[in-house]
């Protein structure tokens, strides 16, 4: 032992040296670095979680936005459809009115025409009676008494009426 240079005093000193170094390095090096690493790990984990949360929120918002957009589109479509429907109805109403008016007008016009035709017929009949009376007076002035005369004319008129109806 002596020849190898081992002496108890030096051995104890070296062991003491190691213990001192152990305590100091533990205090100065390992603990700060390990706690730093731990805190960084925690921080990274937290920020990862935060990022995850933000991503989730964004996705949710996107979904919400999409949903709202879809809703709005639906509403717009419905509005357009109802507007079209209303327009159609209006059109039909207007058309019906117009048709009705036209029909009334036509009817009126027909009535007018009929009335005028009747007027004209009666006028014409009067004229014809008067003309035929005149003509007959001239032709047969003495041969017919008044009553025979009247009967003849009436017969003639009835015939003309038949004719007019056939027309």
């Amino acid at each position: 032992m002596e020849a190898l240079g081992i002496s108890p005093n030096l051995l104890l000193t070296q062991i003491l040296n190691f213990i001192i170094l152990f305590i100091l390095l533990r205090l100065l090096l390992y603990k700060p670095i390990l706690s730093m690493l731990d805190s960084r790990k925690q921080k990274i984990q937290e920020s990862l979680e935060y990022a995850e949360r933000v991503k989730r929120d964004a996705a949710e918002q996107q979904k919400e936005f999409d949903r709202k957009l879809e809703e709005a589109r639906h509403a717009a479509q419905a509005a357009a459809a109802s507007a079209a429907q209303v327009g159609e109805k209006e059109r039909e109403v207007i058309l019906a009115q117009a048709r009705e008016e036209a029909r009334q007008m036509i009817e009126q016009a027909k009535g007018q025409i009929e009335y005028e035709r009747k007027q004209m017929m009666s006028d014409l009949r009067e004229q014809v009676v008067r003309l035929s009376l005149l003509a007959a007076q001239r032709v047969v002035s003495q041969s017919l008494d008044d009553s025979a005369h009247r009967q003849l004319v009436s017969e003639f008129l009835a015939q003309t009426d038949e004719l007019g109806k056939q027309n």
Binding site: L4, I6, L10, L11, L12, Q14, I15, N17, F18
Partner: peptide, 15 residues
């Protein structure tokens, strides 16, 4: 160098 001293190495081994 301490590693060439047996006191150092034996001390560490003992620890």
């Amino acid at each position: 160098s301490p590693s060439t001293d047996l006191n150092f190495t034996v001390g560490l081994a003992l620890i």
